[in-house]
Design a protein around this nucleic acid. Sequence first.
DNA 1: TCATTAAAGTTAT
DNA 2: ATAACTTTAATGA
Length: 198
Amino acid sequence: MVIDEDILYSMGAIIKAYRPSESIFNEGDLPNYYYQVINGDVKLNNYNEEGKEIIQGLMGKGQSIGESLLFMDKPYPINAVAITSCNILRISKCTFLNILKQYPEICLGLFEYISQRLYFKLIMAQNLCTQNPTHKLISLMDYLKSSEEEQSPYSFQVPLTRQQMASITGLCVETVIRSLKKMEKDNMVQIENRKILY
DNA sequence: TCATTAAAGTTAT
DNA sequence: ATAACTTTAATGA
């Protein structure tokens, strides 16, 4: 939870409901709001020249969306799209900044969250250059699993489709599938009726 | 080696 | 039913 929901409510936050594939904001829009997911999942994406989707991030319950853009005046460089049905809290940029002035501990919480997001981006940036597909998938899964309590092998079910893993790593789906099979053979993952256990 | 294309099977809506 | 996802196979850079 980035910011306590009660505080957001007390500052006049409103809940907006989104259907799957409904857009929350689009590339080119000006960031005027702070968004925090109550439930459901959201993806941040782009499309490259060929129209292939690039997933820049996946946000779930308690996470905020596009908060880092609220500290400058530039349009969003990405789209935010609901993956599942979701409810999202929204407050104006101005109110958001006021909350930060008022609550130092929320600032720290926000810094921590932004740190985590930056960490993810750094890992993924490394991935973009000179990595074989297996390594790309491993580092993605390592990151996803790192926030889990249980760390034993095959205890973590990857909550992404192969399609999504491809869009995050820049691989094509077929390569993701082939690599996962090789990794299964090498006992790096287990696959049980299409579920990936890492 | 990996991307692309195509075709077909499977799952989710 | 239809769309989205998964899988396999062939081909080419």
